[in-house]
């Protein structure tokens, strides 16, 4: 009975069970924590233009925003947080769409990296094209969200405690940016 193979098999099965149990404990101990955090968003400059959207081949409104951002993400990290995916989102309503959500900027913070954000006058990373031409004078809400990537467990999506309402300029900017 106690051959080398059967011992190896038992050892393997036992190791797998232990790893599975530890992984599950890791998930369970962090599942009921609060992942929200204070956020400070400020728009430094915003313009609206109307230009052809690449791929789409139609003229749409394009917003350009420079913003400042303050947040301390350190408390969000725990032993079951491998990475935080942060994104700044603009949300607004137009005659064409009830809900428009555009991610303007994102950042990955890996475990062990500096998780204190203090950005000043940053350009948006992605083009803020509207689905039509309805950005002039538009009230938009800017909010910071994060997606918690665990070692194993639930992929939380969390919204920052504060957001910012902002009205875009009501006329198109000239050709100079």
């Amino acid at each position: 009975m106690n051959t080398f193979l059967s011992r190896l098999n038992t050892l393997f099965a036992f190791s797998i069970s232990v790893v599975a149990a530890v992984t599950f404990a890791c998930f369970l101990t962090t599942h009921f924590l609060d992942y929200t955090q204070d956020v400070e968003i400020e728009v430094k400059k915003a313009i609206v233009k109307n230009m052809e959207e690449f791929y789409v081949g139609e003229k749409h409104d394009l917003g350009h925003i420079r913003f400042s951002l303050k947040a301390n993400m350190t408390p969000v990290f725990n032993w079951n947080c491998k990475e935080l995916f942060l994104y700044l989102m603009a949300e607004y309503e137009t005659p064409r769409n009830k809900i428009n959500q555009v991610v303007l900027w994102d950042k990955i913070i890996n475990r062990g990296e500096n998780a204190v954000l203090d950005l000043k006058k940053v350009h948006a990373k992605y083009y803020f094209f509207d689905d039509g031409s309805d950005l002039r004078g538009k009230n938009i809400t800017l909010s910071l969200h994060w997606n918690v990537i665990p070692n194993a467990g639930y992929l939380w999506r969390v919204k920052g405690r504060q957001d910012l309402g902002y009205t875009l300029p009501d006329s198109y900017a000239g050709s100079r940016v």
Binding site: N97, Q101, N147
Partner: peptide, 12 residues
């Protein structure tokens, strides 16, 4: 992949 832009019409 991750969703970076959503448009939802009034009809949903």
């Amino acid at each position: 992949h991750r969703v970076i832009k959503v448009h939802e019409t009034h009809e949903g």
